[in-house]
């Protein structure tokens, strides 16, 4: 992590941590939102690392999302089939404007 970046920004650089989670994490360890990574006390860094290691983020989260899609596909549900053919999953119209679905909805989805 860059030392000059604010702690909030650095937390949000993880896959699976957004504004909501990062703000609560900062509050939990009494870090003010404008704190830079370099300013943190040793204990705060350790606490934060411990908390992050207990959370499902980055590759674990990616794997979970892929597993969920795969499970849908394997059980042969409608949502799974729509993922497999690369079409909208949640009942959208397909007459036009399905570029995003074509791009993203796959069984081996890129995350």
């Amino acid at each position: 992590m860059e030392t000059l970046k604010t702690q909030q920004k650095s937390l949000e650089s993880f896959f699976g941590i957004g504004q909501h989670t990062s703000a609560r994490l900062l509050g939990r360890f009494h870090i003010h939102p404008t704190a830079k990574v370099g300013d943190l006390a040793n204990k705060q860094v350790l606490d934060l690392t411990a908390a992050l290691s207990g959370m499902k983020i980055e590759n674990d989260l990616r794997r979970q999302v892929l597993d969920d899609i795969k499970r849908l596909r394997d059980t042969g549900t409608y949502r799974g089939r729509r993922h497999a053919v690369g079409l909208p999953v949640r009942g959208q119209n397909t007459r036009s404007q399905i570029k995003t679905a074509v791009k993203l909805n796959r069984v081996d989805r890129r995350l």
């Binding site: 009494h30 870090i31 003010h32 939102p33 404008t34 704190a35 300013d39």
Partner: peptide
């Protein structure tokens, strides 16, 4: 405005900062 560092005051109840 949460621009300076803060922490709990040890042994305070209710918690003070």
């Amino acid at each position: 405005i949460a621009h300076t560092a803060y922490g709990t005051l040890p042994g305070s109840n209710p918690v003070q900062y």
